[in-house]
Design a protein around this nucleic acid. Structure first.
Lengths: 245, 245
DNA sequence: CGACACTTTGAAGACGATCAACGCCGGTGG
DNA sequence: CCACCGGCGTTGATCGTCTTCAAAGTGTCG
């Protein structure tokens, strides 16, 4: 993944794809650049919603906490992705997740109402609709996988997606997050995740610490898609939709 | 729930809320009224997407099938809801679910591209964004519940939502769908659903065949929200968002 | 009446969570 | 430099929950 400077990032935001440079500039005038240190929260579940964010660098964990203190990772957002879109359009007044900086993060911050204004531009509205419906579909599929697939299958599926979404080399890449975080993101315990990785070694995936090799794609497909309801096969499908982002 | 005739239904569609009668008429000119007999499919997973639909009467089951023939219910859509929105905005060319008529169904059918045109009206775009982000949030919460809550808790939660979303009386209402269907919608086996209902009798819910009484709301809350990560409490939260629809 | 779908109940089995222990590493402080 | 600590990851053993399989009851419809 090539490093990008600020202007590269801004001019490649999916949110602004297809709109003129002037319009982009006009919209960006309302944005402020902000930095969040690794380990800090951008906002907490329950806070009043003031802003809409676009991530320029770093990754942000979206999470909720249960009354007994267990952290549920809803999503991990990275460069180019937005934060708060759904909550604002929802007409929620309060955040329903917390946002936590996994690394040092820089982001563009806009007043919440800016988003609805921006959505009155039909091109931007379509951009938002596209990304929202893609996200929605992803959540739907993952939810379905929780009931149809084994933990190992879901982990295998997720590894493939990480590989494609982050533009990594399937012949050798390093997990971009800690194993505990990935486990949490997939809704399972770290122990379970660890055991799942072990099992995947018998199905075309090599694992050495954080280094992954998707060695035998056919074997992986065969293992993962045993119960998959997406026609063709689920991981390829998800890879494709991921590439459309 | 009062019976409504066709023009009542059309003039109360959430999709068209806030737009003028003339505009509504103009948009509806491209729609055709269609009937689907109970037990027929509107379309199948994998079919090319031709249309966008708005349900006028009846309910439609959205589902996928796994290679071993098991049916996964993605959603159950009823009057006023749309079908195919996300898939079209996704820029998918093929349906990724099947749509099955649970009863005799009447719906408005529009060419798929009509939706993107309609979305160029900022008011309609916002309406779609709102409903899509609400749906997305619901799926997210349910997905989280699959990992944090027991089957009985999820069933209790769902019963409350059925009650509110269908405008039923919590002191006595009848399940609007078969138990097997609800089980499938919740991603569990009919046997498990049946046992969950039995367990709920100890927690403020009375069940007699298909007749439900939400007898002791406080006991229900206490039981369901033990591990809920939505501040306040999850079912109330969901009730409120449901009422905003 | 018989076929069939739906539901319930029981018993067995599989799977993931939980609890506990240990190894490993990076950082801190003596 | 070494000792200590805390976070992370792995492994083993046990437990609880949901699925699966089997059987039987109920209802509807031909």
């Amino acid at each position: 993944m090539p490093l990008m400077n600020y202007s590269d990032i801004v001019s490649n935001l999916p949110l602004f794809s297809g709109i003129s440079e002037e319009e982009k500039k006009r919209l960006l005038k309302n944005g402020k650049l902000r930095h969040i240190a690794s380990g800090d929260y951008l906002f907490h579940n329950g806070d009043v919603i003031h802003h809409f964010y676009i991530i320029c660098t770093g990754s942000v964990q979206l999470l909720r906490e249960t009354p007994d203190g267990k952290k549920i990772t809803t999503d991990i957002s990275t460069r180019g992705r937005t934060i708060g879109k759904a909550e604002i359009l929802n007409t929620s007044t309060h955040h329903n997740v917390s946002a936590f900086a996994l690394e040092d993060v820089t982001l563009l911050e806009f007043p919440a109402k800016w988003l609805k204004d921006a959505a009155s531009n039909p091109v931007i509205a379509l951009n938002i609709l596209t990304s929202l419906s893609q996200y929605s579909h992803m959540v739907e599929v993952e939810s379905e996988q929780k009931t149809t697939m084994s933990v190992s299958q879901r982990v295998g599926c997720f590894l493939q997606r990480i590989c494609v979404m982050h533009g990594l080399d399937k012949n050798s890449f390093v997990l971009p997050y800690s194993k505990s975080l990935i486990a949490s993101r997939l809704g399972m315990e770290p122990e379970t995740f660890s055991r799942a990785l072990t099992k995947l070694k018998e199905h075309g995936i090599s694992i050495d610490d954080k280094k992954i090799v998707l060695r035998d794609m056919q074997a992986i497909e065969d293992f993962i898609c045993e119960h998959c309801s997406m026609l063709g096969n689920c991981s390829t499908h998800q890879l494709l939709t991921a590439e459309n982002e």
